[in-house]
Design a protein around this nucleic acid. Sequence first.
DNA 1: TTGTATGCGTTATCAG
DNA 2: CTGATAACGCATACAA
Lengths: 336, 336
Amino acid sequence: MDNVNIKQLAKALNLSTSTVSRAFRDNSDISKETKERILTMAKELNYQPNHHASNLREQRSRTIAVIVPEMANNFFSQAIHGIERVAREKGYHILIYATDDDYQKEVSFIRHLHNGRADGIIMSVSGEANDHNYLNELTQKRLPLVFFDRVYEDIITPRVITNDYDSSFSATQHLIKQGCTRIAYLVINKNLSIGKFRMQGYIDALVKYKIPYDEDLIIDCTNSYPKNNVILKKVLTQLKPDGVFTSVERLAFATYYACYDLKISVPEELKVIGFSSLEIAPLLNPSLTTVTQPATKIGVEAALLLFKMLEDPSSVNPNEKIVLNSKLIKRRSTEI
Amino acid sequence: MDNVNIKQLAKALNLSTSTVSRAFRDNSDISKETKERILTMAKELNYQPNHHASNLREQRSRTIAVIVPEMANNFFSQAIHGIERVAREKGYHILIYATDDDYQKEVSFIRHLHNGRADGIIMSVSGEANDHNYLNELTQKRLPLVFFDRVYEDIITPRVITNDYDSSFSATQHLIKQGCTRIAYLVINKNLSIGKFRMQGYIDALVKYKIPYDEDLIIDCTNSYPKNNVILKKVLTQLKPDGVFTSVERLAFATYYACYDLKISVPEELKVIGFSSLEIAPLLNPSLTTVTQPATKIGVEAALLLFKMLEDPSSVNPNEKIVLNSKLIKRRSTEI
DNA sequence: TTGTATGCGTTATCAG
DNA sequence: CTGATAACGCATACAA
């Protein structure tokens, strides 16, 4: 049995396709009983209006695209979960793209979304390159775009972020209050908005507590576990920090692994705090003090914002910035 | 600037739309230079062939749907990562759906995918209900379907699973060899294929080592953390097992939390082993012995299988079953 | 090699 | 309230 289309359904009912079509839209006038009749038969034949045909007609797809740097990542999967919830409620579908932090892919995804496949885009950027102008093509064509978490500051479009500066300040302050004086800041991409803001919070906390800011303690890391392990072991043995603040979850794990390898005991010899959405942070050895972002909520808010744009573009200020608060959760990794 | 369509592009070049169209498909004949000319102009105008129009025409969407029980879950996000990689390579897009273990949603998603939106489906089932017949509609309409990990046994369609029985047997055997004699098996849905197979491995290992099988030690858990906590505390205090084998990751975490609360020390008083795809299992306190499924690979294989079906339906046996091996990784939670 | 014409399945407009 | 018809943008059969 092939897919039923509106024509066959119409024939089965001895009606015109237009009447049948009307049964599925709420606005058009149609007698209650024919509508009933149509819907019943539709269910019976398991009729599903062809998505491409209606979208071609209506010039919209009821689909949004979500672009993230990586899939297998606590933060992003939670954010996607949030987006999913909202989209489902609105009857929208979700296309998903992972850039693997590759700028070329990001550009390519965006470019290829200009073909009607999606009505809007929610994105956390890769942050690899500096020319983000390709994104402006988007707005010219009015494909609504919402950034979340990792954003390009030079692109004007609504965004959902967290109070990175403040929470970094608090995190660093917490380390200081726990007695740290040589605090390393671990970052993957210093140029990315979150890298920058988080670093500034770190620096300003040092300044406030009159702790000399040592540039050597800003540690550039990568996305590769083995490389990070090498880097961190070197840092821990040579620079001998007494505290580590990591701008992303993965680097906190890397720090733990390095400490295990070097038999450095956390928190006695080294205190560790990190941005992390890990739900089982309490189960780590030792339990990890975290700056926890409301990942799911970020997704929800980003989706709501996008849908607001889709419903009425003028209702959203392009400079709209929703700032959610992260939470500093103190655990054993920073105990005295 | 609005979206450019093939007509405008044709006019700009003084060509017919068919010629232009041909420039984008490899098979049709067209002179090399006109093709060049077209492609150049296309790039200039940033022309993107309308996805709905071509799909309506071609009756295929170059899109696959992925349905999983939940988004924010290590195993599934890794599997999706694997699927993503393959799909991207093939130039396919991915629609994503989370059922939240709700059977109704699952049915609804599947039903609504019968409208041309997707060419095929990769799914890990919710497993809540017993009537899976709705899925047979799928095959009648030839929407290719591949199951992974959580499957319905009564539906005939290709699947990618792991050697659950064997690895459960090994896991249980490992606990026994570490001296456990009262081993609890924690499960969320006993009726689901993986729940069943994993349980059988557990039971058979007990039998082999002549350990009496006590039905009370099969513990039905839920997806809710608080509820599981209550259940587990009761189990640990009243049934006093000396080993716990969890059929899903989440229950291993729940066990840890319960042990923390009850000050039961792992592994001294209780040994714990669990199915888990957690990459940081070594960082837990204590590090967790796991049965680790090759999650990403499962995704990759499932995707490859689906694409094989898409390319040539007859090339894949509907009973095809790819079985990948999980790995038992021994860590401190089961040390003597 | 290129152009013309048709249809994919739907919805909107207009007439009845 | 219902039916005929055109159009959405593209790809192909066929004609030139």
